[in-house]
Design a protein around this nucleic acid. Structure first.
Lengths: 124, 124
DNA sequence: CATTGACCTAGAGTATGCTCTAGCTTTTAT
DNA sequence: ATAAAAGCTAGAGCATACTCTAGGTCAATG
C-alpha cells in the first residue's frame, strides 16, 4: 500500500510516517520503480505496537532501540523482552502514582465543593 | 526563605523557580531591599500542588490559567473546581488506558517468554 | 496532452518545558 | 577587608517529537 493509504489506516500523518522511517523506527520501506514507498500490510501491526509504546511514554530513542533489535530477528527476543519488562516496571510505578494523584485530586475537589456549599450557606 | 533554599526544599532548580514566576505560575515574589526574592513558606504547598498537576500532564498553560484564578481569590473557587473536575476526567481516562496498556504489555511479555522457552527446547 | 493529485527529498520551523550563559550586584565567612 | 558563594536580569540554547515548505517527479483522468 502507498503512504497516503497507510496514513489513513494508521492515523499517523504522511510526514510522520516518513519521519519514523528516517529515524529508524520503521525499517527502510520497499520502493517501486518510481521510488514511491510500497508498504506491506504487516506494518500496521508494528505501528500499533509502537503506538502503545508511545502512549506509555517510551521516548523515541527507546522505541528505536527496540526497533533495531526487532530488525535483527529472533536472536534478539531476549533483549527485547528485557526492554519490555523494564518498561512494564515503569508503567506499574506510573500506575501507582496516577492512582494516588487521582485520589488526591478527588479529595481536593471534595474540599472545594464543601467550600462552595459554605459560601452558599452564608448567602441564605 | 531565599531562592536557593526553596530550590532544595521543592526539588526545582533555581532557574525553574524564576521561570515559573516569569510565566505567571508563581505570583510575583516579594523582594528585599537588595532585590533578592524572599519566599513565604506557603509557596511550598502551592509548588506541591502544581507538581501534581505537572505529574498528571496538565500543560503549563492550564496550570497558569489555574494560578491566575487562584490569585484572584475565593470568588474563583467554582471555576477552579471545574478545571480540576475536567482534569480529573482526563486522569480517569488515562488510568483506564494505562491499565489496558499494562495488560497488553504483560501479554506480549508472556508470549516472548514462551518463544524463549521454545528456542531453548530446540537446542536441547 | 495537459492538469490535477499523490508522491519524493532535504531541510527549516514549531511547541513545550525547561536549562544555561554572560555580566553584574550582594552577602557571608575567614 | 576581601574572596567565595549566592543572587540578579535578559536572553540564548536545548531536547523531544513532530510538522511543514520548497521545489521537484510521476501517474492517472478529462
Amino acid at each position: 500500500m502507498k503512504i497516503g493509504q497507510l496514513a489513513k489506516l494508521s492515523n499517523l500523518s504522511i510526514h510522520t510516517l516518513r519521519y519514523y522511517e528516517k529515524i529508524g523506527l520503521i525499517e527502510k520501506v520497499y520502493r517501486n520503480q518510481s521510488k514511491q514507498r510500497e508498504y506491506d500490510d504487516d506494518i500496521l501491526i508494528w505501528l500499533e505496537f509502537i503506538n502503545r509504546l508511545r502512549e506509555t511514554n517510551m521516548p523515541l530513542k527507546g522505541q528505536i532501540e527496540y526497533a533495531k533489535l526487532r530488525a535483527k530477528g529472533n536472536t534478539t527476543i531476549g533483549q527485547r523482552c528485557e526492554i519490555l519488562e523494564d518498561h512494564l516496571q515503569k508503567l506499574i510505578i506510573a500506575q501507582q502514582k496516577l492512582n494516588s494523584n487521582i485520589k488526591a485530586m478527588e479529595a481536593k475537589i471534595q474540599i472545594y465543593h464543601q467550600l462552595e456549599i459554605g459560601n452558599e450557606t452564608k448567602h441564605t
